[in-house]
Each structure stands twice: as C-alpha cells, then as structure tokens.
Simulated assay, not measured.
Amino acid sequence: MPIDVSRALAAEPRPARITWGHKDVQLYHLGLGAGANPDLRGAATDPDELRYTLESRLHVLPSFATVAGAGSPGVIGGLSLPGIDVDLASVLHGGQTIGLHRPIPVEGEAVAATRIAAVYDKVKAAVLVVRTEVGDAEGPLWTNDAQIFVRGEGGFGGDRGPSARPAPPTGEPDRTVERAVREDQALLYRLSGDWNPLHADPEFAKLAGFDRPILHGLCTYGITLKAVVDSLLDGDVGRVRSYTTRFAGVVYPGETLRIRMWRGDGQVRVTVGAADRDDAPVLADTVVEHT
C-alpha cells in the first residue's frame, strides 16, 4: 500500500524555516479579491480594502497561515513525508482548520514543523491529517490541520476517524453576502504557493475527473473568512481565534459565492454555496471562533 500508516505516524516532524513579507501578504489578499468593492461595482476602491492592499495600513488575514512561506511545507509538502507515496491526481483537500495563538505579523521568520497527525480509513479513501505547527522567536504563532482525502487508498482496516458533524445552523442568517470569483482568480491565487496543476491545467483537471480547472479550496476558504471579518467582526483580523471548514464541493472560476453567516456566542457559523448552481454546497461545517 502506498501509505505506510505505522511509518507515517511514527515519523518525526519535518521542520522548515519560512519567511514572508508585506508583498507576500498583499499578493495573497489580492488573490482573494481584496481591493474590489463587491457592493459598488465600478466604483472607486473602498478605503476599508486598503487594510488588505496598502503596505502602510496592512494587517494579515489569518487564513494567510495556509500560504505563509509560499505554501511550504503545506499540503503538497505533507504528501512527501515518510510513509506517504500517493498519486497527486487522486488527492482531494477535504477540510482545513487554523488555530491562532496571536495575530500574524506582516513580516515574519518562523519554523514550520509538519507531521502526519492521523491516518483514517474511509474504505474507499484514506484521510491524512497533515499538521503544521508554526512558531517564531516569540513563541507559537499558529497550527494548521489539513484533512487530505486520497482516493483508492482506504480499506486497510484502520481507524475510521471521527464521524460526528455539527448540526447545520437554523433560522435566517444574520448576514448574507455574495462574492464574485474572477475568471483568472485561480491563476492569481496560485502565485502564493499552491502550484497544483488541477487549478490551472485543463488536461490535468480532466485526469482528476473535472471538466476544467477548479478554484483552490483554500482560496474559497480565504474569501469566506474575509467576508466574515469584514461583515461581522468590524474588520478586525485580531479577533479571529480559529477557523475550520469542510470542503463540500467545487467552485469554478467565474462563478459567484453566496456566503451566509449566523452569529453565536463567540463564534460565527457559515455556509457557502455556488449561487450560479442553485446554491450547490461549497463549504460546510464552517465555524469562525472569535473574541
């Protein structure tokens, strides 16, 4: 079996030194559509967007943690850890969680230690939990958990993993916004470090079972967090403590995301659908924990 579970779980974390600066942060934000005014199309840039795009006012959206250091080691790097030997075309990103210890600085140098935290047997697929813990000279910064589905690698008799899912939010959402995805969104977003050809190469996309390249799930993830911060958290990225989601469906460049938000006690529940396809689910089980 290409996944050697015992070896993968026993391997020591793989450390990597990562650095980033304001240009990396700005490029990431632009890859999410920052700088546009979604509510006043054709109008001048919303001054509030300058906190994402102008270096003198810059703050860092917490989902930047998924690409800091040009996405290294990241999801793709996790697939090269000991005990893991899989075909990239069989891989799907199933979910993502970020836990923040403190706000991410605009300029940084840190060590990212990546390991396989769990391997679950879903019969038709294996699920890898790739955990990256990042810290700098001042202490821990964030923890990333990526849940990676590897089709065709299940059925090895292992732990099936947690099955409980939160109940969907009820009642009318407190806020609903729409965010248009540009036709070139994936091509711009991938410059932040996710070079998977699934998001750019039509031939590779067909090998993976898609008619055409799809948007990065982590791009949708970032677009959604930005919408929550801007709509319900007063634009204050420092209030975010954790952010988790399950990738429930694909987004194609050129579509529109419909993002629904429900306020709770210290959290925002979110659902995201493709407005052009009758709200086909895109992100589910999505929670932003905040102060």
Score class of each variant (00 low, 15 high):
residue 4 D to Q: 12
residue 7 R to M: 12
residue 8 A to S: 05
residue 8 A to Y: 04
residue 10 A to L: 06
residue 10 A to C: 01
residue 13 P to H: 03
residue 18 I to C: 01
residue 19 T to A: 10
residue 20 W to K: 08
residue 21 G to A: 11
residue 22 H to I: 05
residue 24 D to V: 00
residue 29 H to M: 10
residue 29 H to N: 14
residue 30 L to E: 07
residue 32 L to Y: 08
residue 33 G to C: 03
residue 35 G to I: 14
residue 36 A to R: 07
residue 37 N to K: 11
residue 46 D to F: 00
residue 51 R to E: 15
residue 58 L to P: 02
residue 59 H to Q: 15
residue 65 A to S: 13
residue 66 T to Q: 07
residue 69 G to T: 01
residue 71 G to K: 09
residue 74 G to A: 11
residue 75 V to D: 04
residue 79 L to S: 11
residue 80 S to Y: 04
residue 82 P to S: 15
residue 84 I to D: 00
residue 84 I to G: 00
residue 87 D to L: 15
residue 92 L to N: 03
residue 92 L to P: 03
residue 94 G to F: 13
residue 100 L to D: 04
residue 102 R to G: 10
residue 104 I to R: 06
residue 107 E to Q: 00
residue 109 E to N: 07
residue 110 A to P: 05
residue 112 A to Y: 05
residue 116 I to L: 01
residue 117 A to P: 03
residue 122 K to T: 01
residue 124 K to V: 06
residue 125 A to F: 15
residue 128 L to V: 12
residue 135 G to V: 14
residue 141 L to G: 10
residue 141 L to C: 13
residue 146 A to D: 14
residue 148 I to M: 04
residue 149 F to I: 09
residue 157 G to R: 06
residue 160 R to T: 07
residue 162 P to K: 12
residue 163 S to F: 09
residue 163 S to C: 09
residue 163 S to R: 12
residue 165 R to P: 00
residue 167 A to E: 11
residue 167 A to L: 05
residue 168 P to C: 15
residue 170 T to Q: 04
residue 173 P to F: 10
residue 173 P to I: 11
residue 173 P to D: 05
residue 174 D to C: 11
residue 181 V to Y: 01
residue 181 V to Q: 03
residue 185 Q to H: 09
residue 187 L to A: 12
residue 190 R to F: 13
residue 192 S to G: 06
residue 194 D to R: 04
residue 195 W to F: 13
residue 195 W to Q: 02
residue 196 N to Y: 14
residue 196 N to G: 14
residue 200 A to S: 08
residue 202 P to F: 08
residue 204 F to V: 15
residue 204 F to E: 10
residue 208 A to C: 14
residue 209 G to I: 09
residue 210 F to H: 05
residue 212 R to Y: 11
residue 214 I to K: 01
residue 215 L to P: 01
residue 215 L to N: 02
residue 220 T to F: 11
residue 223 I to Q: 14
residue 224 T to S: 08
residue 228 V to G: 08
residue 229 V to H: 00
residue 235 G to Q: 08
residue 240 V to I: 09
residue 244 T to L: 07
residue 248 A to I: 05
residue 252 Y to H: 07
residue 253 P to T: 08
residue 256 T to F: 00
residue 264 G to H: 11
residue 264 G to V: 08
residue 276 D to R: 10
residue 289 E to M: 03
